[in-house]
């Protein structure tokens, strides 16, 4: 496959930390508009892969292309974010001493220079977008709350809202339902499916029930490379996947 026709293209990517090969000759392709679930045991390299895509970690070898033409290994985190890749962390990371609304204001796509921020005035359009997102993430009643006072699930949602505010082409979502109740998990799956209608989404998740609800193509990672790829049923029937991950 050629990189040109893809949204995200990883080919032969490797990275080691102190001799440990976290990612080993990993190749993965994501089409525009696709939703993909990544599963795999602990230490399979799921989070490291996200670090490489978002510029936090530079690979030792291999190609990482975005939109078919942008070499992500040549850009840093801020530049990659501005190219249109948003990331949600495993541990919900919101700005706790800011209100829910201010968290979204900070995430909202727009100029990022210090000078424009100093004299920034909120436009009607921006206010409207924030309103929409607050509604989408079901936090419109809590806009003045400090993010610190939200429940764990609400923080996860706020972070997803911040991703939406960034208006990215690709969302990387790391374990979005960790610590959520069943009802919240179902709602989150619904929300992500909704988001995936207009953007590409890459979800890392352990919860197989949730992965099934996402109804997406699944990639199983193991020891830094792809073990199996296909529909959830295909992957979960793969003998090696059962051995290393799902258990017998």
């Amino acid at each position: 496959m050629k990189a040109q026709d893809t949204l995200l293209y990883l080919d032969g990517v490797s990275v080691s930390f102190d001799g440990f090969r976290a990612i080993n000759n990993l190749s993965l392709v994501l089409q525009a508009g696709e939703m993909r679930a990544i599963i795999g045991p602990n230490g399979a390299g799921k989070t490291t892969m996200m670090d490489i895509i978002t510029g936090k970690t530079k690979p030792d070898a291999g190609d990482v292309y975005f939109n078919g033409e942008v070499d992500l290994t040549r850009h840093d985190e801020a530049e990659i974010a501005l190219l249109g890749i948003g990331r949600k962390f495993q541990k919900p990371t919101v700005f706790e001493s800011h209100t829910v609304e201010d968290n979204l204001v900070l995430a909202l796509s727009g100029p990022r220079s210090a000078f424009s921020a100093l004299f920034h005035k909120q436009s009607a359009n921006e206010a409207e977008r924030i309103e929409d997102i607050l509604y989408t993430i079901r936090l419109n009643g809590k806009r003045d709350w400090l993010a610190a006072n939200l429940s764990h699930g609400q923080k996860q949602w706020l972070e997803i809202g911040m991703l939406l505010a960034q208006d990215p082409k690709l969302l990387l979502v790391d374990e979005p339902v960790a610590g959520m109740t069943d009802a919240e998990t179902a709602e989150t799956a619904k929300l992500l499916r909704e988001i995936a209608k207009t953007r590409s989404v890459l979800v890392v998740e352990h919860d197989m029930h949730f992965v099934r609800e996402l109804d997406a193509k699944v990639t199983c990672l193991h020891e830094g490379s792809v073990l199996a790829e296909g529909s959830l049923d295909f992957v979960s029937n793969d003998q090696r996947v059962i051995e290393v991950y799902l258990g017998r």
């Binding site: 801020a78 974010a81 919101v94 201010d102 900070l106 210090a114 911040m162």
Partner: peptide, 20 residues
């Protein structure tokens, strides 16, 4: 807004970077 960015940097610097 710059002040809000600064507080964001204080509380979660890498988050701020991933926001661009």
């Amino acid at each position: 807004k710059l002040g809000k960015v600064l507080v964001g940097v204080r509380d979660a610097e890498s988050r701020m970077r991933f926001l661009g």
